[in-house]
Design a protein around this nucleic acid. Sequence first.
DNA 1: CGTCGTATTGAATGGGTTCAAGTAGCGTGG
DNA 2: CCACGCTACTTGAACCCATTCAATACGACG
Lengths: 246, 246
Amino acid sequence: MIDCLVRKLEQHKHLSREDQQVLLHAPWQVRSFGPRIDILREAERPVTVALLVEGFACRYKLLDNGKRQILCFHVAGDMIDLHAFLLEEMDHSVATLTPVRVAFLPHGKFAEIMDAHPRLARALWRDMAVETAVLREWLAGIGRRSAYGRISHLFCEVLVKLRAAGAANEQTCDLPLTQAELGDALGLSAVHVNRVLQQLRREGVITLKGATLNVKDWERLKEAGGFDAAYLHVPPATEPESLSPA
Amino acid sequence: MIDCLVRKLEQHKHLSREDQQVLLHAPWQVRSFGPRIDILREAERPVTVALLVEGFACRYKLLDNGKRQILCFHVAGDMIDLHAFLLEEMDHSVATLTPVRVAFLPHGKFAEIMDAHPRLARALWRDMAVETAVLREWLAGIGRRSAYGRISHLFCEVLVKLRAAGAANEQTCDLPLTQAELGDALGLSAVHVNRVLQQLRREGVITLKGATLNVKDWERLKEAGGFDAAYLHVPPATEPESLSPA
DNA sequence: CGTCGTATTGAATGGGTTCAAGTAGCGTGG
DNA sequence: CCACGCTACTTGAACCCATTCAATACGACG
C-alpha cells in the first residue's frame, strides 16, 4: 500500500533495501475520505505527515474576493503535507476529488526517519522539487498562455504524469474534474472552459466524457499547449512519444 | 559574506555552531555578474550550487509563444539552483536584475555537507518550502486577482520580504524592476502595469520612482491586494504591522 | 545634444467573464 | 417505473478588463 510511494521514489534512484523497509514498516495509520472533502485546511497545524495511497486530491487557496485557485493535483504516491512538516502551519488547503485513502505518520516518527536516512530524505526532497517545478509551469501557463493553450497543456501534463505513475494507457486516463474545477485550476471561468472543451472536441483533438480523458491527437494537443515534458522530470521511457500521430 | 544565508536560516531555528561553521567555511567561489544577465539557462546541468550574496535576481521561463513569465525574485541569502542539485537539469532560467555576486559550491561538496548535517539539510529544505509557498501565492494571484490586486499584493510581499531580510525600513525598499519586468512577473502587459501604477499613485497609496518603492498607505495597499503575510512564513516580529495607518 | 531605453498616453480590439436561461444525466423516494 | 430534484453541462448576449498598436515624452548618459 505504501509501496506506491516507494515505487515513485525509485523511478529516479534506487533505494537501499533498508531505506525501503523503514518506509514500508513505519507505523502508518490509514483513513478513508469521501469525495470533495477537505483533508487539511489553511491555518491548521497538522501533527502528522500524510501520504495519498488511493484516489485523487488537490491543493487550493480561497482568496478574499471569494474566488478559488487550485494549485496542483495529487495522485496515489504523493505526500500531501510535507509543507506543514517543514513550515508548521498550512498556508493552503487540501481537498479530495474522488474517494481517497490517506496514510498518516506522526511528525516525530517521520523526522527520525529523515534524519537517520539521508538518502531517503534526499529522495523526498527531490520529489518536492518536482512538485515545485510543476507549480512553476502552471504559473507560466496561467500568466502567459491563452485559455486554449492552458487547457491543452494541462491535459498533456495529466496524461504524462498518470502514465508515469502507471495509471494510464497510451491515450486514455482518469480526469475526475468538473468543468468548474478545471476553471479553478486554470484561472478561467467554468463557462469558458466549456467552450474551449467543445472546440477541442470539434477539432478531434480530445474526448472528455465523465471522468475519462481521451487524447485522440497527441501531436496536435502538444502543439496547442506548447507542451514540453522536461519540467516533469519523469524518466524518458514513460513519456508517450510513441503515441499515434493521428 | 556567506552569513547572509546563515542569518536567514537562523530566523527560523537556531543552528548549532558546527552547522554554521561548516557552511561558512565551505570552499565557496565567488563571482560577479552585471545586470540583466543570465546566470543559469534552461536545460543546463550545473555542477555547483549557487548562493546569491549580493544584488537582485529572478527566475523566469520563456514560452513557445515568445512571452516570458518571471517566476520569483531572489535577494541576498537565497540559494538559486538547489533545483538543479536535486533534479540535475534546469527547467527554467535565472537572470540578474541588478549587478550581483554569487557564491558557488560543487555539488559533491554540498551533498557531503547535507548528508552529514541533517539539521542543516532540514533548514535548507524548509527554505525551499517557503519559496514554494510564495510560488503558490503567486499562482493564486495571477489566476484569480485583478491587475490592481496583483500589483498591490506584490508590493506588499516585496516590502515584507525585504524587511525580514533587513534590507528595507518601515515603508521604503528597493524594487529594481522596469514596468515590463513587473508585467512579466504578474502576467500583465507593460502598458497596463503603467496605468495601474498611476492609479495607485493618484490614490496616494504608493510612490515608485526609479528603483525605489515607497508605501504611503500600508493598510490601503494590503486591503487592495488581499494580502495576508502568513504564506511568507517569516517570524511575526518582522512584519510591518506597525506601519503608519495613513 | 542626440540617442536609446523606459515611461506615458490614446484608441481600437478582443479574449474571457458574467448573467441568465435552458438542457441533460442520474440517484432517490414514492 | 416515473417524477422529482440535484448537479453538471450547454448556449446566447452583453459587457469589461486588459491587450495591442502606435505615437509621444522623458531622462540618463556618452
